[in-house]
Simulated assay, not measured.
Amino acid sequence: MLMNSGNGEAKLHYGASSFRVVRGGNFVRCAVSGEAIQLEELRYWSAEYQEAYATCEIATKRLTAEP
């Protein structure tokens, strides 16, 4: 696992129960709101869509939306 060094936006690979840092940084962006999410605060993501979400409400809405 790579360390999350740097002050910019990180690139992550999202797994079912964890993520791996591909490119160091200290935050990722919510796929819906664009809000910056600090890596230590990241709790919601989709391994299938490789997206991060700022809140459980955003994640639920995104993942239950009809295609």
Rank of each mutant, 00 (worst) to 15 (best):
G34F: 05
G8A: 03
G25S: 04
E9A: 09
L2N: 15
M1I: 13
A10R: 00
I37A: 01
A54S: 14
R20H: 12
N4A: 15
E51P: 01
L12K: 05
R29Q: 11
Y14N: 05
L2D: 15
L42Q: 03
I37P: 07
R43T: 06
G25L: 02
P67G: 12
E57R: 15
R62N: 09
Q50W: 01
L39F: 06
F19I: 03
R23D: 13
R43P: 08
T55H: 05
L39S: 08
G8V: 04
A59E: 13
E66Y: 10
Q38E: 11
N26F: 00
G8N: 02
P67Y: 11
G6M: 01
S17N: 14
S5P: 08
L42M: 02
A16F: 10
G8E: 04
E9V: 11
S46H: 09
N7P: 00
A54Y: 06
T64Y: 07
M3V: 15
A36N: 09
Q50C: 07
V32K: 09
L39T: 08
N7S: 14
L42N: 03
G6H: 02
A52T: 04
A59L: 12
V28S: 04
A54F: 07
Y49F: 14
A52W: 04
E41T: 11
R43A: 10
N26Y: 00
S17G: 13
E66I: 14
V22T: 06
K11R: 15
G25R: 00
Y49G: 01
V21D: 09
Y14R: 02
E41W: 08
Y14Q: 04
R20D: 13
G34L: 05
L63K: 06
E66H: 12
T64A: 03
H13D: 12
